Simulated assay, not measured.
Amino acid sequence: MEFDIQKFTGTVFRAREEDVEVPDLAPYFKGLGDQGKPVWRVRGLTGAELAKVNEAKERNRARSAIADGLLSSQGEAVTAAVRELLGEGDAVPDDLAKRIEMLVIGSVAPECTHQLATKLAGAFPVEFYQLTTKITQLTGMGGEPGKPKRSSSKATSAPPSSSAT
């Protein structure tokens, strides 16, 4: 069977998205009401984004090596303080650093910062891993053929006027 290069290169792909229910985070969602379910919307990553996620592991190791080099002659209290300042109190596992980056990039709603992802990993590790596992699954499925979604529900321009003037 032959791969149809023209069909593939002519297809517009968009990131796959999916809602992940996070019931234990319900107290932190505004306006759910009685029937609302707390959901975190995530998406699959592009190749470049996946590479950035994979580099997070290397950045994590580099920070640790730099801290070790700078602090090799310092006392334990100073070493611990600098490590906390660098955001790696006790050594951050590579998988965690990678998943934090993944959640930051792959979160659609709510938008996620490194600080939020780190807090979520510490306070709600099961939900954190569920979200990052879903991002991995969506990434593995590849892009979804179709037109990209509009960034807003508002039309960019009005239809042409039917009057002659």
Rank of each mutant, 00 (worst) to 15 (best):
M1N: 03
M1I: 02
Q6I: 12
T9F: 11
G10M: 06
F13K: 07
E18N: 11
A26D: 06
A26Q: 13
F29C: 03
L32S: 03
L32Y: 06
Q35G: 06
W40D: 00
R41D: 05
A48L: 15
E49P: 10
A51D: 08
K52G: 07
K52T: 11
K57N: 02
R61H: 05
R61E: 13
S64L: 15
I66W: 00
D68G: 14
S72I: 13
S72Y: 01
T79N: 15
A81G: 06
G89H: 11
G89P: 03
D90P: 02
A91Y: 10
L96N: 00
A97I: 06
R99P: 01
E101V: 05
I105F: 09
S107Y: 08
S107P: 15
V108K: 12
A109Q: 09
Q115K: 10
Q115R: 07
L120V: 15
L120K: 04
A123I: 08
F128E: 11
Y129K: 11
Y129I: 00
Q130R: 08
K134I: 08
K134T: 15
T136S: 13
T139I: 04
G142N: 08
P145L: 10
P145H: 01
P148Q: 12
R150D: 12
K154E: 00
K154Y: 04
T156M: 11
P160H: 08
S163A: 12
